[in-house]
Nucleic acid binder design. Structure first.
Lengths: 244, 244
DNA sequence: AATAAGCTATGACGTAACGTGAGAGTCAAT
DNA sequence: ATTGACTCTCACGTTACGTCATAGCTTATT
């Protein structure tokens, strides 16, 4: 049973951090004294290890809290995930070493190097480890869609969606590969990419979903009978013509 | 020559980050258009690589700025430092893997584990890489002493120093190993450890310095002739009795 | 020339994760 | 009782952007 300084000394994090973690409900000590001193048990320390690990991997505290407090959380599984992620991070470091070596050679005049090569392994676009943890602890597709929706006013999304759907509904009796159909489906593609991140292949797959999942079909066909099927075809054509 | 989106796409950092880096003078693009668009050259990208690397290693931006803008900065040397630090980080990861493995075994009931062992390799007390970079780019001892002094009001330091010195001056004609002398020299020891980090051996060494360096002697003996010599002896006795 | 889409800029507020200091209480040794 | 180390809560500050608003710029198309 340890007090804050002892835990801080043991782990290297600050007393303030422990206070903060308690405050946000991330790590609440099992016990407190009559004087309100925080008393950390062995189990608390075990949990802290998990927290510090996820933190080391770049996870925001809010997300860490969700993970460790979920009913699905299993400590041994988490430890095994940690291990996998550590190995992965190590691979990343290997790649970074290679990039640095290449840069050194380039700097010494030995080789040429593209800008792309210069940043190999230095990919900061997103936390690469979160992907894997998400597969384990959350529904990635659901998370992603929720997040993307948030980026834009729901009213606006609905409005633009409706506009494009109505345009397409007028064209649905034509062939899906006419210029007009393709132009409008292109609008849909670009609109989606303003709120998300879709490759043309993902776009094609989404079109397929419109007909495979009856909730999509039902929703889309409100704008016109058969619209979902039409869009699926138009989207497939679009993807064919715009591979990228 | 790239504009902000191109650089952002290439590196995975945000346009906002590039703006911010420009704003704080960390990375200012070599050129701008008439419309004030930022134009990044190859050299700018090279510098950005350095920045992102130091950032990956956990350095605050302010420190990164100091490093790369110093007249001592040599890109090839920096790249070689990067490499060394990457290898070191990799070793840390190896250690973390071992700790996780050990924890897994413990969790499965196979072995016992101390709290200390639980956090092996998870040392977050300070950025371990900064130490090495500091040796290369800055005077660590000077930095440390400046930092420690800053933790306390100079007036307060002077006052407490004076108080303790006057106490000791009254005892200087006694033997340096009396209870009273040792108690007061203990105050001095504890006071020093509030503004710094001294082992008893360092304490002993400091006492020796009081007599070896005439500036110390002169300063201390203002409180009483022979005080420096007395303190040296008392400090040596203290160190002997309080090995730790 | 006008338009549209994508990109650019600056300004400014908000967020996450603490760091820091103040003031007061607690604990254990002397 | 005193002292030094530790504890608490409160609250403001810092760092490093994220986000949004507003307005201008660029390029391709009509």
């Amino acid at each position: 049973m340890l007090k804050v300084k002892e835990v801080a000394d043991l782990t290297g994090i600050s007393v303030r951090t422990l206070h903060y973690y308690d405050e946000i409900g991330l790590l609440t000590p099992s016990n407190t004294t009559d004087a309100s001193y925080r008393i950390y048990s062995d189990a608390d320390l075990e949990m802290l290890q998990q927290i510090l690990f996820f933190k080391e991997m770049g996870f925001p505290l809010k997300k860490i809290k969700e993970i460790i407090h979920s009913s699905d959380f299993d400590r041994i599984e988490a430890l095994e995930l940690h291990r996998n992620l550590l190995i992965e991070k190590r691979s990343r470091l290997d790649q970074m070493v290679m990039t640095v070596d290449k840069t050194i050679q380039h700097a010494k005049g030995g080789t040429t190097m593209t800008n792309k090569e210069r940043f190999e392994g230095f990919d900061f676009s997103q936390n690469p480890y979160e992907q894997e943890a998400r597969e384990k602890y959350g529904d990635q597709a659901v998370d992603k869609s929720k997040q993307n929706i948030k980026k834009m006013d729901p009213e606006k999304i609905k409005e633009e969606t409706g506009t494009i759907y109505r345009k397409l509904a007028k064209l649905r009796y034509d062939a899906p590969d006419t210029d007009e159909a393709q132009s409008t489906i292109g609008e849909w593609y670009h609109f989606l990419n303003r709120i998300g991140d879709y490759s043309t292949e993902a776009f094609r797959g989404l079109g397929q979903l419109y007909v495979d999942d009856e909730r999509f079909t039902k929703n889309i066909d409100q704008y016109g009978e058969g619209l979902a099927a039409f869009m699926k075809d138009a989207m497939a054509h679009y993807a064919d013509r715009n591979k990228g």
